[in-house]
Nucleic acid binder design. Structure first.
Lengths: 214, 214
DNA sequence: TGACTAACGGTCATATACTGACCAAAGTTC
DNA sequence: GAACTTTGGTCAGTATATGACCGTTAGTCA
């Protein structure tokens, strides 16, 4: 059924045209100043049409992150194929994560907006679930690096994996939050990288130092 | 108004998709065996949609010729820029004309169908006019070649231009009719070319020979 | 040769998709 | 605190598309 296939394709194309227009505008101006009307105009549609494809302005906003973060995960997947120490892998993973958000800062804002305002976003359940799963995927990859370190004898088997992975993820996001939108613009990237490097080094040293209380 | 522009583009694209599908099917099977339903399916539309863009099956058929013949005229336009004798130009024009139809035989059938069944084609007036103008354009080019010959002293000024151009056009079409669809397939092109060459040579000799009756 | 059937060009009632005026809520101004 | 403006989201009206249906034509059969 070519006819049905064409209609499906047109719907898909329409959705993508909306996302593309929205992405451009959000990245240029941020969430608030961009109106649904302006997205509609850039996508060459009416405002009513936007709501045929997306439930809300927030849904469009978060869908942008979901579209982009697949590339990040594909990139990360290659990381674990490259032979190296677990410590090196962890640093490299952190750098790729940071690069992803440095490349487009608005993506980080989208992630944080979601993390901080989940219940206010008015997202359909499946989109909520999808974002959570996607975020967890990143966290799981961090956990795999720790497991890899234990397997190679690099890290002690006594590490609390869940705790460590959450701590690393939190630290990455916390450091990025501190420096991505504030400070001297030309020094932000370096500030993030060096702080993360120092933080990871210290955390890893902590892992390797026997706990005298045990 | 991007929205209106997009809608206009979509209509244009839809029309072109129909023409493209129709062209493919007509060239493969000819006019009769191709149904409007089959064109619709190939264009990934419903049959009712076809009639939103074209008034009839015949209109689609003739529109195909109109789309293609522009290329022919552009090609021919270059001809008159190349310095040569009028006789040579005439032969070259005839060859380009023949090539055009040899390249896609169905185009000739479309032209002849129009010429022979104009009143039965149920075409809107503007399309009728357009085809007539387009056909006349070809005839006018032939006339210009004769004028060129007179200007250079190659042909006598006593030539009846209208008569000659119509005779040449008729001869070309008549010869093509004779050989395009009948005879041994591998010999058809050559049969047409050589017959046209001979016919043109004879006609030109006739032009150059003083009429003793005058 | 007339009755019947199948096929298909073209039509149009219905379905689907889209639009932008409108409403309610929130923020701003006086 | 009232009036005003802006904007996310809604929905009645409009635009576009679909495919069942009808009328006509051509072919078949008795």
């Amino acid at each position: 059924m070519g006819l049905e296939e064409r209609r499906r394709r047109e719907r898909e194309n329409r959705k993508n045209a909306i996302l593309k227009a929205a992405r451009r505008l959000f990245f240029e101006k941020g969430f608030k100043p961009v109106t649904v009307e302006s997205i509609a105009r850039k996508a060459e549609l009416s405002k009513g049409s936007i709501y045929l494809y997306y439930n809300s302005k927030e849904e469009i906003y978060t869908q942008i992150l979901l579209n982009d973060i697949d590339k990040f995960h594909n990139h990360i997947a290659a990381l674990l194929q490259t032979p190296s120490s677990a410590s090196e892998a962890l640093v490299r993973l952190a750098n790729i994560y940071v690069d992803f958000f440095l490349n487009e800062r608005e993506l980080f804002r989208i992630l944080m907006t979601f993390m901080l305002h989940t219940t206010d976003m008015n997202l359909p359940d499946d989109l909520n679930t999808h974002i959570i799963k996607t975020t967890n995927k990143t966290i799981d990859i961090i956990e795999q690096v720790f497991k890899y370190g234990i397997e190679r004898g690099e890290f002690p088997a006594t590490i609390n994996l869940r705790q460590s992975r959450n701590a690393i993820w939190g630290m990455l996001n916390g450091i990025i939050s501190l420096h991505l939108f504030t400070g001297i613009e030309t020094k932000r990237a370096e500030a993030i990288r060096s702080t993360i490097k120092a933080g990871l080094d210290t955390y890893i040293r902590g892992i390797l130092t026997p706990n005298p209380g045990l």
